[in-house]
């Protein structure tokens, strides 16, 4: 795959996976109202210091064939056009064109 946006998304996925446990720990400390405010504040500062591509919300499910970001049918990970092409070619088991 040579799509730049897919490459960026893969980078984000790697970052999220690598930093997830540390981020969760800081989130736990930061959101815990039973802890002293100074400790929670420090944890929040640490959270803010993480890079952009460590947040799960930066990850976007893109089309695995064409790299498109919109109109993704999440069950197949395909954009609607790629889904149509594959479905018509019979490459998606159990999917067939409606007719009544």
């Amino acid at each position: 795959m040579t799509f730049a946006r897919v490459a960026r998304d893969m980078k984000a996925r790697q970052g999220v996976n690598a930093n997830e446990i540390a981020r969760r720990a800081y989130l736990y400390v930061s959101r815990n109202q039973a802890l002293p405010p100074s400790v929670r504040y420090q944890a929040q500062l640490q959270l803010n210091s993480f890079g952009r591509y460590t947040r799960p919300s930066t990850v976007k499910n893109r089309c695995t064939v064409s790299g498109k970001g919109r109109g993704i049918i999440s069950e197949f990970g395909l954009s609607r056009y790629q889904f149509r092409l594959k479905a018509l070619a019979g490459e998606l088991p159990g999917v067939h064109k409606a007719s009544w």
């Binding site: 998304d9 999220v16 997830e20 446990i21 969760r24 989130l27 930061s30 959101r31 695995t64 990970g77």
Partner: peptide, 18 residues
């Protein structure tokens, strides 16, 4: 903040998307 510890990790599944 227990919900942040209780939630399943999403990273391993994210990596295998493409």
């Amino acid at each position: 903040g227990a919900k942040y510890l209780r939630k399943n990790l999403v990273g391993p599944a994210m990596i295998n998307y493409y």
